[in-house]
Write a protein that binds this DNA or RNA. Structure first.
Length: 718
DNA sequence: GCCGTCGCATTTTTT
DNA sequence: ATGCGACGGC
């Protein structure tokens, strides 16, 4: 068989990574160096050239998207369908294991996955039961605590609470929450991993089975693994297994949610004998951009070390724009977007605007709307996270298992049917006392006539509705079942009554859910698998993703993407690096890595902007230029002067002196400032006490100043 | 059960 | 500024 196609398109480093016969392999893959490609090719190489059985391959990623891309690439390379390989996310694979061995894992057969929102609801309920004051202990912080412990592999009894009343308190809620999950057959995301780990740990025969099966293990984005993911992977290894990990310590940006860079830093020592291969040739960006990225990241300590390079040309300088405020910043972005499209023949979709925090998107959005530029914001709720979808899924879940408390709570009074807090409280009370599910408690409450007639009828109505849905849909195809439930539950009718476009959009989404069910390809049990799919794949963010529009997103969500034109906005101390990161040791380096990620998204041209003045939480601040910009080599940066096409009030042109200002400012006027030295006036805004001038100082670069306070002295030209 | 008002927090996100 | 949750009146 001809296998040359597997290696043909690769460079030397990539080829040695693909073909390495080292026992363990660490591939340090810089941004844009063909990481996913190497992983896919290595898998195919081991099957086609080394004769490894597909059944013995386990490939793990973090996101469904990455898993999908990997499958696609493998499929494209192999001349036949992939069979037997396990390719998926950590969570997906853990789910698969738990489904197969639910009994050994101590679960009920039809356990349900709890997403973050469901989890928070349940934690709130637990806190109520324990009479914990939510004012003093925010439910969110309990949620973080519980997830943190699980990510570290710790059960309530393993949490070290010695002498820490705060921890002791949290641990109690954790314990209670865990019991509630166990009772209800519920598994949160962190639990999937921890359970899968414990399953192997306490069932040696199973562990043995999987160790024998998965001879070659591959992990993508290894720098993002947390403790439990690492331990899980490690547990699977024995003397005969091989492991390949791919990642980039310089792109580790998820430390705040438990990722451990140490996992990749220490990999070569912990998994000896190990070969390390660096992929440093970049196929994405110009040398200018790469040099900037290299210089920036060199400020970090504790790196495995890497230097990106390209065979391509130097490219254009990086543009730096000093805006007066966030509005001016947005104006600049809009101007340049227009210029890129109109003068450089670019497309909107080639342009990304990246920011540190979501709050920054608003002003940018407003600017784009005003200029009639199409845009798309990443982030926000995904399809399966939307309320109307989750409601429909809750009904579906109830038809599958009446004892799904989370689903019960979600829709017991939706659409509203007169089951208020009082009634629900009663049901919960019975459930708690008699240790039964809410469904059973509701039946008891009705039977024993513990409620006023009105409420009792409402509850009976709900029970009958669900039973009815259950019976009518039993024999239906999955998609028919979803459709039946959409209308049978009254959800469609409910949203029809909503005013405005909102209800309409919700109904559209519900219809979309039917379509999703139609195209869903189950293996055995359609309903169960569809529910699992909905829980683990949050779906696309927004509809029509392939339209030609400017892409707005946070730096975090930009990881893994690339764009010809990239704007990094809000390059200011306190914003980026964020205030929060400046408090804690080590976080600054992560912010720098985030900046590195941002810079390396750009293929052709990078724009950096910062504002001299910005509204944050309602009040005006004067942030200083981000240290990250100052860490970039001067020669790569070109400060953007006033844009000739920006319209300015006519008054600035002439000599219209202001009564109370000491001097007048013309564009091009040379001025002196006590601190910044000599510079040139390049823009003027406002008048009187509000007059602002932008001066490009010879030493300090461009700055916006309030004319009243700046005390600028005109400098006579020689 | 629905709607208005007050108080409070406010980096980043996947599964 | 803004949005979300709690709280109180209809």
């Amino acid at each position: 068989m001809d296998i040359s196609h597997i290696l043909n398109s690769l460079n030397d480093a990539q080829r040695s990574a693909v073909t390495s016969d080292a026992k363990h392999l660490l591939v340090l893959a810089g941004a844009g160096s063909g990481k996913t490609r190497v992983l896919a090719h290595r898998i195919v190489w081991s099957v086609e050239a080394e004769g490894v059985s597909p059944y013995s391959i386990l490939a793990v990623t973090f996101t469904n998207k990455a898993a999908g891309e990997m499958k696609q690439r493998i499929y494209d390379l192999l001349s036949r369908p992939v069979q037997g390989m396990w390719i998926g996310t950590f969570h997906g694979i853990a789910h698969r294991l738990l489904k197969a061995h639910w009994s050994d894992a101590g679960l009920s057969e039809n356990f349900q996955i709890l997403d973050s929102e469901d989890q928070l609801r349940l934690i709130r309920r637990c806190m109520k039961e324990l009479n914990v004051d939510e004012k003093r202990w925010p439910a969110k912080s309990l949620q973080f605590f519980i997830n943190d412990q699980k990510d570290e592999g710790l059960r309530p009894h393993q949490v070290d609470v010695s002498g820490d009343p705060f921890k002791r308190h949290h641990q109690k809620v954790y314990e209670h929450y865990e019991a509630a999950c166990q009772r209800g057959g519920l598994i949160d995301f962190a639990e999937l991993l921890l359970r899968a780990y414990e399953l192997w740990q306490k069932t040696p025969s199973l562990l043995q089975h999987y160790r024998e099966r998965f001879q070659h293990i591959l992990v993508d984005e290894f720098q993002d693994t947390n403790t439990i993911q690492y331990k899980w992977t490690k547990l699977l290894m024995n003397e005969s297994n091989r492991i390949t990990v791919v990642g980039d310590d310089d792109q580790s940006i998820y430390g705040w949610r438990g990722a451990r860079v140490e996992n990749i830093h220490n990999f070569a020592q912990r998994f000896a004998p190990c070969e390390t291969i660096r992929l440093e040739q970049n196929y994405r960006s110009t040398q200018t951009i790469l040099s900037a990225a290299n210089a920036l990241i060199a400020n970090n300590s504790d790196r495995l070390g890497k230097e990106l390079w390209t065979e391509g040309n130097g490219g254009e300088p990086i543009s730096l724009y000093s805006a007066y405020n966030e509005l001016d910043e947005s104006r600049f972005v809009v101007e340049r977007v227009k210029q890129i499209v109109e003068e450089r023949g670019g497309h909107y979709k080639d342009i990304a605007v990246l920011y540190r925090s979501n709050a920054q998107s608003r002003v940018l959005e407003e600017g784009l709307i005003r200029a009639d530029i199409p845009y798309r914001i990443y982030g926000g709720l995904r399809f399966f996270e939307r309320a109307e979808i989750k409601n429909a899924l809750a009904y579906l879940r109830l038809t599958q298992s009446l004892h799904d408390d989370a689903a019960f709570e979600r829709v017991v009074n939706l659409p509203t049917r007169g089951i208020g807090d009082r009634t629900l409280e009663k049901i919960r009370e019975i459930a708690k006392i008699e240790q039964v599910t809410l469904w059973m408690a509701a039946e008891k409450v009705v039977d024993r006539q513990l409620l006023p007639t009105r409420a009792a009828n409402a509850v009976r109505g709900f029970l009958e509705l669900v039973m009815g849905l259950r019976e009518s849909t039993q024999a239906l195809e999955l998609w028919e079942r979803v459709e039946y439930i959409n209308s049978g539950s009254g959800l469609i009718e409910f949203h029809k009554k909503e005013k405005g476009e909102k209800g309409k959009a919700r109904i559209e989404n519900l219809k979309e859910l039917v379509t999703a069910a139609k195209y869903f390809e189950p293996e055995e049990d359609p309903l169960v698998e569809f529910l699992g799919h909905a829980a683990l794949e949050s779906g696309e963010g927004q509809a029509a993703p392939d339209q030609d529009c400017v892409q707005l997103m946070t730096l975090h969500s930009a990881k893994g993407l690339e764009f010809p034109y990239v704007f990094l906005v809000g390059m200011e101390e306190g914003l980026f690096p964020s205030q929060m990161s400046l408090q804690e040791e080590g976080r600054l380096e992560e912010e720098r890595r985030l900046c590195y990620v941002g810079v390396t998204r750009a293929m052709q041209k990078l724009y950096l902007t910062h504002a001299e003045s910005r509204r944050i939480y309602g009040d005006e601040r004067q942030p200083i230029l981000s240290r990250f910009v100052r860490e970039l080599p001067d020669e790569l940066i070109e400060e953007v002067r006033i844009n000739a096409t920006v319209s300015r009030p006519a008054m600035m042109q002439g000599s219209g002196a202001h009564a109370d200002s000491e001097c007048e400012f013309r564009l091009g006027q040379r001025v002196h400032h006590a601190v910044f030295g000599v510079g040139t006036v390049i823009q003027v805004e406002g008048e009187g006490a509000h007059e602002r001038v932008q001066v490009k100082f010879d030493r300090e670069g461009a700055k916006w100043l309030m004319a009243t306070y700046a005390k600028l002295e005109p400098v006579e030209l020689a």
